[in-house]
Nucleic acid binder design. Structure first.
Lengths: 93, 93
DNA sequence: GGTCGACACTTGCAAAATGCAAGTGCGACG
DNA sequence: CGTCGCACTTGCATTTTGCAAGTGTCGACC
């Protein structure tokens, strides 16, 4: 499997990169991600589980039933790729 | 819609970026893409149609019922993003 | 002139992913 | 004790993806 295929295998699912992009601004809570992105709640829960399993993000317990999601170093390393893709998306010629 | 969401809207579908990556090496024929990538033929046909409609690639007629797919400038502009993603995928720490 | 093979798809259908709406558990607060 | 906010889960319809087989066309060969 090529390197690109490997990358897409972990962050190629729908909403995955958008979640990571949102977390580039710092840790966010579940409800914030849901409202900001408009992602269906069950899909968000699935993605967060997958991205955590892939070592892209971690859960930070805040209070009782409140936690925040934060990028790991591996997650932060996606910044370049996300910026490149976003710039391409902005060039609607 | 954010720039990233716009980008993913056109190249976020499964196999789309892998097709583009393959075309970075130069124009390829349908059968080549299919064999090299292992993508299901109906999905490949759909992606090529979508990517052509999005202005990412064009069809080059070669002989009778043979044509090649080549990236447009807009398609070539994806190189940076693809390289960044592939490098991230290669860093399996 | 008929047959065969290569090429680029299309079609039919099953499986998986996604989306929507409603429901669940649980601690805090009144 | 009841209600609220938060982080999910669950059930089900819709869409996407994948697999296998079939179609049309043209050139080469017999």
């Amino acid at each position: 499997m090529s390197d690109l295929a490997a990358a897409l295998d972990t962050v190629g699912a729908r909403w995955a990169l958008l979640v990571v992009e949102r977390l580039l601004d710092g840790p966010q809570r579940y409800g914030d991600l849901q409202r900001d992105l408009g992602v269906p709640t069950n899909v968000l829960a699935t993605r967060l589980r997958e991205l955590e399993a892939a070592g892209v993000l971690t859960r930070l317990p805040l209070r009782h039933n409140t936690r925040a999601y934060a990028l790991t170093d591996r997650g932060l390393a996606l910044r370049e790729a996300i910026v490149a893709l976003a710039r391409w998306g902005a060039e609607q010629t």
